[in-house]
Each structure stands twice: as structure tokens, then as C-alpha cells.
Simulated scan of single mutants.
Amino acid sequence: MKLNFKKTGEGEPLIILHGLFGSADNWFSIARDLGKSYTLYLVDQRNHGDSPQSEDWDYEVMAEDIAELMKDEGLASAYLMGHSMGGKTAMFFALKYPEKVRKLIVADIAPRQYPVHHQTILEGLNAIKLEDLKSRKEADDLLSKYISDSGIRQFLLKSLGRDQDGNFIWKINLPVITAKIENVGEALDLDGTFDNPTLFMGGANSNYINEGDKADIDRFFPDHKIIHLKNAGHWLHAEQPEAVIQTVKAFLG
């Protein structure tokens, strides 16, 4: 699949993958700084943003999408960073194509299986009937019945767009994500290891990477480092962007 991406900056290539319900836009503010040191590929993963939509949606096909992007761009290898779902895609890709990844950064996710915990978000999104929707304000009001946090609602509503006729559309493939949400939480199930340097960068206020994950991380990524950024939760790049920028630079540089 030919993914949509924004290429910016100059230097060695760094591919960045967003998380579930997100898009390449989530990394634009950080890209302004990192682009001074690296050529960034800010990617919309399939079924998200402006990339194509498909019934096929798991880490196998999402990793193959990255392989196709690198081939099209003439990249023999690159630095690779992914957040949450994007971190799982990045881990899967690094284990399958270790020769294509110079260093790996995994933001607030571990290789283990995670239980489905997005039911309320999916209920809220599916409650918005696009054919009847009159405004973004109306969408926010409907979503507020399910999600009280306005920041999370605004993040989710970034995926609400309009088609060429002005009708509201979802940029995410909501039916497929709803039907196959369990795929996002799947554990890595691959043989082999990724032996190049790997950084697991978690949020100190998040429970996505914990002490119990070290055995799995050791198994797949023997040359790794785990850090937790202070005053950051799961969306650490939005909550502590400067800390993320400096940590990425130090690790890659």
C-alpha cells in the first residue's frame, strides 16, 4: 500500500509512526526541531489520516507498508520511531527487517499483549451519525456523552474531515478499526531478535511499560535501554515535547 507521508528536514532518515486514532499531524510540532538534524518521514498508517483504507489491518500488513515506503524512497535503512500502535508496527518491522533499521525508538508500548480498552471511545465515535451531522461542535457534544476529557475529544475529532462535496467523513476506517480492534493489542509473535540499539521511552505517569515487560523486551531487543519521562503519560510527545526531542537526539546522535 502506498502510504501518505510528509517528508521534511535534512540529514539521515528518521521514519515516525503515530498511534491508534492518530495521524502524521500528531508529530508536526516535534518535527520542526528534529527536522534540523534528520530527514523526517511523518507517516499516516493505513486506515488513518490520508492513507488508503483497507479491510486488511494488522501488524504484518502495516510493517509491509513501511517496507514499501522505504523501497519507493530508495532507503536501504533508516532510524525508526513509533508511538503506541506505531511502536508495535516499528517493533514488528525491526524484527522482520533488522537490516533496514539503524536504531529503534519505541514510545510507550511494550511487546506484550494488551487487553482491549478503547470500547468507550469506539462507542462514542460510532454514535456520531455523519449523514445527520451539522457541525464539528455537534460532534463534540455527542462525543462528550462518552468522553469527558476535552483534550482526548479534540484529538479524536482531528480525524473528522469533509469530502469534496463538503460532507463529513472519518479519515480513520472506523468500521474496520471497530471490528478488528483486538489486533492492536496483539503481542509480538516473531522469531529472532533485533540486535541494534533500541530505546523504550515511556511516560512516568503511564502503565504501558512496566517492570513486568522487561523479560519480553530482553528477549526481542537485547541491546535496549528503558527510560520514563517525568510528568508524562501515554501521549508523552504531546505532554513533554521538549523532553522527547532531547531524548531522541541524545539516543540517535
Rank of each mutant, 00 (worst) to 15 (best):
E239C: 02
T247Y: 00
R219N: 14
G203P: 06
D140W: 10
K129S: 11
G161R: 07
L40N: 01
K36Q: 13
G202E: 11
L20D: 15
D195P: 00
G74V: 00
S144K: 11
H48L: 07
D58S: 12
Q113E: 07
F93R: 08
N196Q: 10
E73L: 03
F200Q: 03
G124H: 11
F5S: 02
G87R: 09
A243F: 03
P175M: 12
Y79Q: 08
Y146L: 05
K134N: 13
L160T: 10
L142M: 13
S135M: 11
M81F: 04
A232N: 05
L130N: 08
L156Q: 07
E10L: 06
M70W: 03
G49P: 14
P222G: 10
A63P: 02
Y208C: 07
N196I: 01
S206P: 03
G212Y: 10
L69R: 00
S159M: 12
V106K: 09
K36H: 11
F220Q: 03
Q246R: 07
L160G: 12
R136C: 13
D195K: 06
A76L: 09
Q53C: 09
D65T: 02
T8K: 03
K129D: 15
K249I: 01
E99T: 14
W27F: 15
N4H: 15
N183H: 12
A94G: 02
L156D: 12
E12V: 04
K158L: 08
M81Q: 08
G87Q: 08
F155G: 11
S135V: 06
Q164T: 13
L104C: 05
R136H: 14
D50F: 07
G9S: 04
V43L: 06
D141F: 04
Q53H: 15
P175H: 10
D44M: 04
V116K: 00
R153Q: 10
I147Q: 12
E123R: 13
I172K: 15
